[in-house]
Amino acid sequence: MIKKHDDLIVETLARLLTPFIQAFALYVLFLGHYSPGGGFQGGVLVAASFILLIIAFDLEKTTERFSEKFNVICNGGGVFIYAGIGVLCILLGGNLLDYSVLSKILPVGPEEARALGILGVEIGVEITVAACLVSIFIDLASKGENLGGS
């Protein structure tokens, strides 16, 4: 569907905006403790930056950078981080997602271990949401054809 079209303004603007959108996504993720935001919103922002690249350039050029194989790995990897932290808490003798017991393996106290645990879970959520939305858009834009990679 999305073919290459030569528009200098659109391409330059997309190229300039993409790193700022991704930096703002990381800001939203890490400030999610204290302010509105968090993993889901940050993940949607990361996905929006890749969707902007797909719209401004073409599908093939973007999937060279963010291939479908890597997309599948991210899709599963985020869930793995989320569930892995939860199960790690059980293995260390606490409840599921009870981050304070993470202080046994991290060099911090229980309170800081709670903050770091929720940060790890949010990072997992961000990776999965970003990869999932990008894969939905790639499927919609390419009529479900396999672009190679996975």
Partner: peptide, 20 residues
């Protein structure tokens, strides 16, 4: 928080999905 989610998902990504 809900407004942020609505701005990113509702106005941003889902419109692009509909157009696609």
């Amino acid at each position: 928080d809900v407004a942020f989610t609505e701005a990113t998902v509702g106005a941003g990504v889902s419109t692009v999905f509909f157009v696609a």
